[in-house]
Design a binder for these strands. Sequence first.
DNA 1: ATAGCCATGTAACCAGTTACATGATTGA
DNA 2: TCAATCATGTAACTGGTTACATGGCTAT
Lengths: 182, 182
Amino acid sequence: MSVKHAILILLEHEAASGYDLSQRFNRGIGQFWQASHQQIYQQLKRLSREGAVTCELIPQQGKPDRKVYHITSDGRQALQQWLASESKIPSIRDALLIKIYAASLGQPSTLQSELERHLKQHRCLLQQHLAQERDYFALPADKQKQRRWPYLTLRRGIAYEREWISWLEEVRELLIQDQAQG
Amino acid sequence: MSVKHAILILLEHEAASGYDLSQRFNRGIGQFWQASHQQIYQQLKRLSREGAVTCELIPQQGKPDRKVYHITSDGRQALQQWLASESKIPSIRDALLIKIYAASLGQPSTLQSELERHLKQHRCLLQQHLAQERDYFALPADKQKQRRWPYLTLRRGIAYEREWISWLEEVRELLIQDQAQG
DNA sequence: ATAGCCATGTAACCAGTTACATGATTGA
DNA sequence: TCAATCATGTAACTGGTTACATGGCTAT
């Protein structure tokens, strides 16, 4: 349900095409919830079927028509309902945890390279988040106030990546000790 | 792919029925990866089709036959391959983050009760993890050494819940300030 | 040339959830 | 008698990924 409602949130802010949504998704909500362009097109089709959005065709030269979607009052209502609904706490579901859980069954060297790969990626994500944080702080005070909720989710992302990094470093230490011992 | 391989990991340790697996899943890997019994039965069927496990029927009185699954050498090979493969870094995908991202669109009071609900559940999960940590420390030294990898994943879970809690508390403060202001 | 952005989608598949179904045993 | 545990599954659906497909425009 979430991608559908995330789309409604973006459309509530501004009407957009599937392509636009996919861009905006990646920058904002994409920090913690990824959606491919295919999925967005699928969900837009469904939202349209359900009457939550309407589609406006804008002809262009040399490109397919832009399909600009607008949220309807039904869509707004559905969004309000969803915002007021209870959502479940998901589990972490990171395959790396399963691999570490079962580390004694595999090769320490392959696990270690996998660990390094993850560390690198988490460090990269952290850097991206920190850059976004700097952008946020560069905004004038009124804009900052406007965007305080998205900023809070960014902070969640920052803390999340920091924690992965420190935990992965700890695991790496143990893996190295293990290999030294035999 | 992960549930399938998690099952192979459990079977590598000890042959088991779908029911057993579902129990063991909940206690161990279930900390960070949940699987329903239906899914486990589905995956067992598929693993069996693929030749990664074999099934031994054990008749019982007054109950359906116990189907005890054993990992095969093909299964072991598939598991090794998976352990050596690269897995993706998933995103957080918690719907609550979307709701907070869009907090300005909804009712502060409903968001707050949702926040409290999540806080409570995260605190509960943390307590469960801490209890498991105490159990681990109560083990004799050799058993501790044996279970050090699962323990590391437990530590990940503990840090994860702690972080959710402190972030949610921060968000709550802001929400309360917001309501006070207007 | 060729890579990358703009812009749209379909089809097949894998992963996971929800609802439904059956039926014995055991303990409060 | 009612709930919980043991023990198995099917069917329908939702959510998400991967692969494939098309085709013009723009900058290097």
